[in-house]
Structure formats: structure tokens, C-alpha cells
Nucleic acid binder design. Sequence first.
DNA 1: CTGTATCCGTCAGGATACTG
DNA 2: CAGTATCCTGACGGATACAG
Lengths: 145, 145
Amino acid sequence: MSQRNTDVSAQLNALTGCAPDAVTPFTPGQARACTVREVLDRVGGKWSIGILVAASQGPVRFTELERQIEGISRRMLTLTLRNLERDGLLERRVHPTVPPKVEYTATPIALELYESLVALTSWAERHRGAIAAARQTYDREHTTP
Amino acid sequence: MSQRNTDVSAQLNALTGCAPDAVTPFTPGQARACTVREVLDRVGGKWSIGILVAASQGPVRFTELERQIEGISRRMLTLTLRNLERDGLLERRVHPTVPPKVEYTATPIALELYESLVALTSWAERHRGAIAAARQTYDREHTTP
DNA sequence: CTGTATCCGTCAGGATACTG
DNA sequence: CAGTATCCTGACGGATACAG
């Protein structure tokens, strides 16, 4: 199993652009950064969060999402759903009826992720104003001498 | 101030691809998703987190970062630094010496963000294995019948 | 209803040479 | 040392049209 795990880890790291632990033990801080990257590479896409949030309320159908997400294309909806399913964040259940009916549900792992995201929303809400102000200041000072 | 805030908020939302609150009150869940997007649009870049982590330990110089970050190009380092500075997450201090010396320091806001990210790293560490396994399973079941 | 297949545009990001 | 200026590439994502 250790053999297996090594492979998996290396593969995962390769996929996420993170160097394998064994190869880069010299910058301890960056290991932490790398861990965060793993998450971002998974839910950093333009639509992932929206879908995850919607699916966290209970089973959702394809067309429901298409309407709820507002602006997503059919293609991106499918792609994002597949990726989330692949990572074990969504469960896809097909009802063999006619017309077809497919329901997506957030897995326990995804629900935990959703909880973790609360910390981020809190941060955004607290500092949203300060950030906007910082931008204005910066932009003002860096244009038209 | 309310006037000002409205403008800022609308502008911010425009910049982040989120619809202004007033315009989309119909999907309450997606508002939350939108808030998370604000964060991701700020630190979702390939190098932002790494730089933020490094700068959180104390003032860091340009070349220090270039070595520490491992794989970053000079161009992307500059760009990411500028963006973080613009959003008020980094402070850039120039020492008028020769040769020049520039130090980047994480602002209090950035440090708070850093704390919030801990929840995410914890999530990643707990489920990293499960996700890798889910991927293997998915890939096995979706290739060469 | 739930997708797949195609085509195409944009833009983050890499490599590298030059500069105050 | 700490950047800018260019050029170039691939991946992400939008717009349809078609299909089971």
C-alpha cells in the first residue's frame, strides 16, 4: 500500500503542479502554499463553487443548475460537473426514465469543503470595502503622471 | 457614504464578474458563491498564495521570492506582486540605495486571509487521499470499455 | 432532458532579452 | 538588484449545432 500511496501522491502532485514532498523539503512554508493550491486547482474554476453551493442544498437536476447558475453555458456546466464528480465532490445519479432525469448531490467531502469556505466568505465580507478602496488609491497613484 | 459604497460595490462586482446584489436577489445561495469568487479572483492565481505565504513570515525581497517560489518567472513574480499590492494585501517599500532594495510585507488584511486559509489546508490534508482514490476509480471506469 | 462535438477567441502564464 | 518589454503557447471558456 505504501507503494501505491507513493504513486498516487506523486501523480496528484504532478497533476496539481506541486512538487512531490520528497523532492522539495527545503521551503517549509511553500508546502503549505502547495496544499492550498490543491484545493484551488479543484474548485478554482469559474463555476465550481456555484455548482457546489447549489448541490449542497440537496439533489439538483441538470436544467435546474443551468437556470440557477446564470450565465453558464451548457458545455461548461457539463465539464465542471464531470470534474467535480471525478474528484468525488459530486455524486451523479441517473434515473432511467424518459425523458432522462439526472440528479447531482454534494458528497460529505464537498459539504465539509463548503463549511471551510465560510471562513473565506467572512474574510471577503469584512475586507471587501478596504480592498476596493486600496484599488482606487493604487489606480489613482499609478496613472497619468 | 452610502452613495460611495454603492458605487464601489457595483464596481467591485463588475470587476469580479459577480452581478450587483440589487440585480440578483433571486438566488440567495449563489450570492454566497459569489462572495467566495471575490476571494478566488484575488488569490486564485498560480503564484499568489505562495507569495502571500512567504511574505507573511516578514519582509521579503524580490530576489528572495524568485528563489523561494521555485519555478516562477520574473514576469509573473512582478505581475503577481503588483496585483497583490494593488488589492492592499502587500506593502511595497523601496529603499533608495544602490543597488536598489525593495521589500514586500504582508498587510494585516493578508495575514487574516492567511488564517482563513488554514481551514482549507486542513480540508485538503484530510481528504487528499480520498480525492486521489476517487479520481483513480473514475478514470478506471471511464476509459476503454 | 441531458448531454456531446466543434470551432474559435481570450488571456494567464512561460522564456528571454534589455534597463535604471 | 529589481524590474520592464516582447513574443509565444496552451488551457479555459463562450457559442452553437447536433444526438440519445
